[in-house]
Design a protein around this nucleic acid. Structure first.
Length: 539
RNA sequence: GUCCCCAUCGUCUAGCCUGGCCUAGGACGUCGGCCUUUCAAGCCGGCAACACGGGUUCAAAUCCCGUUGGGGACGCCA
């Protein structure tokens, strides 16, 4: 395992921080800032240490997606761990959109990110900030470095650079910038020029990572990276540092694909005179073939999971267990997660995304959540399945339930199906015979169960149910038993034909539950229709 | 190629720091059974892992070294 000990040292020192005085007397919580509010102003000059921003030792973390695509599983998990940590520490969770890549960022992606975050319930305290609105800040800081001779102009063209890189790679050499503009002393470039950070080649950069433990890099592996493109836009490694510093970020929690960026960023924090935050690098999520998660595994937009009928809380629960654990516990409420989350139990190795387990977690939530909650969530799926707005298919009473707030009937529906639905989409499909006025009887089922021999029993049952003084569970059961005895049938012999007549299907919730959901009128009517069908059927 | 990270059932993981309680625990999936008005759900049980090789030690999944394997980074992407 190589470095287990040092990881634990890091964890231990983190723990001490966590248990220090401010933890016991958390600063009063500021009212949550809603998205869309004006960004908080951060001092640009003079340069301050990040500890001076906000309450001393308040935890400040951020999620910083780039709007070049949708928000996927991996992004949500990174956001989640940041959010959980912030909430656990009574700190702040900041949302920042890293849109400095003009050519690839889209408005649409920003909206998708925001919608995704809202759907899973990860609310942010500050932001969303957009880096393109903070250009002056990056340029000011870049110029500061230029003045201090910690940055220099580079006139190598992108094409030249690319060619040299390929060449080096082909020769088996490290493809790093050779620093040829470093000593050119260009003070006032006339043509296209990029600004490079002058990175020391001496010594080492040591990271005490919250998750990985101590990681050491020789500074000689880091080259002079470009901080300002020739178009004047900052590059990622520069804008993150400026923003993390100005926003007072205390803990940078991100995917471990950023681990090797850390030794590039730390010297920039130092050159700028800012405190270096703590880092925590989360293991990646892989697809079933153990390669990086991509479209074919599940790196589709998180909102696709909503459309597939997953509950946001199930999503959160599944994702948090991908890399974090609390003994043998599998199911956690969000409140519990906030209470229990820590970095000591975050796995160091990558995890494979397992759709089967996600489905199981979702089923658990469907089974154990308040029926009212599930019913509320279910309504849009019923609507999407076509039961929401086609008046002719619905009974009046049910229409009320479907139109807005779910009532008793919807809750009963949920209770009837929560143990047989793994997603809300499944539940909506299963609910069809109960919300429709007319049902379609499956051919197979009719052939097997609606035969002439069952006609007398079915007729008797319909009559019996029709004459009941009250349509209670006990009463209908009594009527049912009566027919059973009279006709000398076993439960299954009558229940199946009844089930098919009532729902059109050979599988359903308990037969009395079905009758209860349908109500007396529809139950009797469908039984009579079933009788007709059975009469015409083959023995 | 160079640098960095990682390594317990098919998958997610507990255990590792503080070696013995591990004949390695739980969960998903899978297989078998029970229950049963169908379908589910539930319950019971089975299969299934410490990557390999060296050390250290009375004792190693746990500590050390190496090997192998996997992943990541090396952009005027983020």
């Amino acid at each position: 395992m190589g470095d287990g000990g040092s990881r634990n040292r890091a964890a231990a020192s983190y723990k001490q921080r966590g248990e220090s005085a401010p933890e016991r007397t958390p600063p009063p919580r500021q009212p949550r800032r809603r998205s869309g509010e004006r960004p908080t102003k951060f001092p640009g000059e003079p340069l301050l240490f990040s500890d001076q921003v906000g309450t001393m030792s308040e935890v400040r973390v951020r999620f910083a997606p780039s709007p070049t695509g949708y928000l996927h599983i991996g992004g949500v998990r990174t956001a989640l761990f940041n959010w959980l940590f912030a909430r656990h520490e009574h700190g702040k969770f900041i949302l920042r959109i890293e849109d400095t890549d003009q050519s690839r960022s889209t408005e649409e992606a920003i909206h998708a990110i925001l919608d995704g975050m809202k759907w899973v319930g990860l609310d942010w305290d500050e932001g969303p900030f957009r880096q393109t609105e903070r250009m002056d800040l990056y340029r000011q800081h870049a110029m500061k470095l230029l003045e201090r001779q910690q940055a220099y102009w580079c006139i190598c063209s992108a094409e030249e650079l690319e060619a040299r890189r390929k060449d080096a790679l082909a020769k088996g050499l490290a493809p790093k910038y050779d620093g040829r503009c470093r000593t050119r002393g260009i003070t006032d470039p006339t043509g296209e020029a990029a600004l490079r950070f002058m990175a020391s080649q001496e010594g080492q950069t040591v990271i005490e990572d919250l998750i990985k433990g101590q990681v050491v890099f020789d500074n000689s592996v880091v080259d002079d990276l470009i901080i300002l493109r020739s178009n004047g836009y900052p590059t990622y490694n520069f804008s993150v540092v400026v923003d993390d510093a100005l926003m007072g970020i205390t803990h940078v929690i991100r995917g471990d694909d950023h681990l090797t960026n850390t030794p590039r960023q730390i010297p920039i924090f130092r050159a700028l005179g800012y405190a270096v935050p703590r880092f925590g690098h989360l293991p990646m999520i892989l697809g079933s073939d153990k390669t990086r998660l991509s479209k074919r595994h599940g790196a589709t937009s998180i909102l696709v999971y909503r459309d597939m009928g997953y509950l946001p809380e199930a999503m959160i629960n599944y994702l948090v267990r991908l890399g974090w654990s609390y003994g043998d516990q599998e199911i956690f409420s969000v409140a519990e997660l906030i209470e229990k989350f820590d970095f000591e139990h975050v796995q160091k190795s990558s995890a494979v995304f397992n759709p089967d387990k996600l489905l199981w977690v979702n089923a658990e939530y469907i089974k154990h959540s308040e029926p009212k909650r599930v019913a509320t969530l279910l309504i849009p799926y019923l609507a999407k399945a076509g039961f929401g707005d086609e008046r002719k298919y619905k009974e009046e009473a049910i229409e009320m339930e479907l139109s807005g707030k779910p009532g008793e009937w919807m809750e009963k529906l949920v209770v009837a199906f929560r143990e047989r639905s793994k997603t809300l989409v499944e539940m909506a499909a299963a609910a069809a015979p109960y919300v429709q006025r007319e049902i379609v009887i499956e051919e197979e089922a009719a052939k097997k169960y609606l035969t002439p021999s069952i006609v007398p029993a079915l007729t008797k049952l319909a009559d019996g149910l029709a004459s009941l003084s009250e349509f209670s569970h006990a009463a209908m059961e009594k009527a049912f038993k009566h027919v059973l005895e009279e006709r000398g049938l076993k439960m299954g012999q009558l229940a199946q034909p009844v089930r098919v007549a009532l729902t059109g299907r050979a599988a359903s919730p308990g037969i009395f539950e079905v009758m209860d959901l349908l109500g007396r009128d529809r139950t009797v009517a469908r039984l009579r229709q079933g009788v007709e069908r059975a009469r015409a059927g083959r023995p």
